[in-house]
Amino acid sequence: MDYFIELLFSGLTRGSIYALIALGYTMVYGIIGLINFAHGEIYMIGAFTSFVVATVLSIYGFPLLAIIVLAGVCAAIWSSAYGYTIEKMAYKPLRHAPRLSPLISAIGMSIFLQNYVLLAQTSDFLPFPELIPDFAFMEPYAHIVGSSDLMILVTTAVVMVALTILIKFTRIGKAMRATAQDRTMAMLVGINVDRIISATFIIGSSLAAIGGLLIASHIGQINFYIGFLAGIKAFTAAVLGGIGSIPGAVIGSLILGLTESFATGYISSDYEDVFAFSLLVLILIFKPSGILGKAETKKV
């Protein structure tokens, strides 16, 4: 039973990690129907930014809490700037091009950003400081779930709730939903669609940056390539849950994380990817739009 609970928590942690990245994929897809393959790189840039900020601040002896908050804020701002710029440079000029063009542009952007960080920083793995301390009250449970796991679980839950409130109950959320439903109609009723799209990219990038901070602190190392595999898995999770749906991204991520964890625990970690992707295939056969996805009726 203990073993089951341990695997359950490790699956939930892994799922929450995917969820923080998957939310960005799903939001962008919901608004403009584009799979932003550069999103994994935004996450990686967030991790690098928080690495730089945290290193500098710890040299000046700031308290740990201040370091986490400042690093998180700086990473979110910096990653948002990247997300905003990517949208303006690589996707906006292609908004009326065939659907495949922005997709190729996104893949190009992803490759560009990876190599940019490789050249500007280093190809080596860098040690990421342990920003999340071992909480004293967690010590009796440390063998089951660590403090950083708990932090990731809580953050993901908070972020999902906050995002749902933002989209359901605020002006900008309403505008986002309107843009997602029908872009032309939204423009006709006076919504600045370009601004809404930019806002979506900024929110998605900030989430990825916070994910970068938490995950890098959890794993303890970063390099220019971490965005790729995490991005692919998060994208899979978003598709599993129904791309375009925010609760769907979280549910899909948790299912993916738990599948991988239990497959490793009860069968073999050699097969964790086999199980994860078999599950994806099965769900897409029986429910092509994903668990919570709406069937697409409009032609884009």
Partner: peptide, 19 residues
């Protein structure tokens, strides 16, 4: 066991080692 290089988290395989 074999693990996937670059995966975000190895806690499941570590639990397995412990068990």
């Amino acid at each position: 066991e074999g693990v996937t290089p670059g995966a975000v988290d190895y806690s499941a395989v570590v639990q397995k080692v412990k068990r």
